[in-house]
């Protein structure tokens, strides 16, 4: 967008609280993962208990990571930055060709008057184009 900042949308507080909760759960699951790893090392749990514990922790952790990535991505929009529009001025009698900035009132086939190269009144706008719009 050329002017102004588009509103982000969504209540800021709600999103802040949600991300806090997410961060908390993430930390918590990380802790649980480490604890589980510790248990395996110390052989303090039977195998079934440990794997349940670990998989729960793992799934939770994945959930958090997935959500953070998804929220960050949002709509990946390609925004068109209004780019420069140029007019091609050409002469019908000679090879004269020139680019100039588009001015209000320009149109293709518009007569542009006298050619600086050959002196005939044969200058005209042969094309109007924009350079590749940059994508965000």
């Amino acid at each position: 967008m050329a002017q102004g900042k588009p509103p982000g949308g969504g209540s800021v507080t709600v999103r802040f609280v949600l991300s806090l909760i997410l961060a908390f759960i993430g930390l918590f699951s990380l802790l649980a993962l480490l604890t589980g790893y510790d248990f395996i090392q110390q052989r303090r749990l039977d195998d079934a208990g440990t794997s349940l514990y670990l998989s729960l922790a793992f799934v939770t952790f994945l959930f958090v990571v997935f959500n953070i990535v998804r929220t960050r991505r949002g709509f990946s929009l390609t925004t068109v930055v209004p780019s420069k529009v140029l007019s091609v001025v050409q002469c019908t009698q000679c090879s004269f060709k020139q680019l100039k900035n588009f001015a209000l009132g320009d149109y293709v086939t518009k007569a542009e008057g006298k050619c600086t190269q050959c002196g005939n009144q044969t200058l005209f706008v042969s094309g109007i184009f924009t350079e590749a719009g940059k994508k965000r």
């Binding site: 929009l77 390609t78 149109y107």
Partner: peptide, 23 residues
């Protein structure tokens, strides 16, 4: 939504072109 947004951006670009009379 992503398609709708793309279309909306396109129309905004169109509005700018129409306002200035650009091809």
């Amino acid at each position: 939504m992503p398609m709708v947004m793309q279309e909306a951006e396109a129309y905004m670009g169109a509005a700018r072109a129409f306002a200035e009379g650009q091809p």
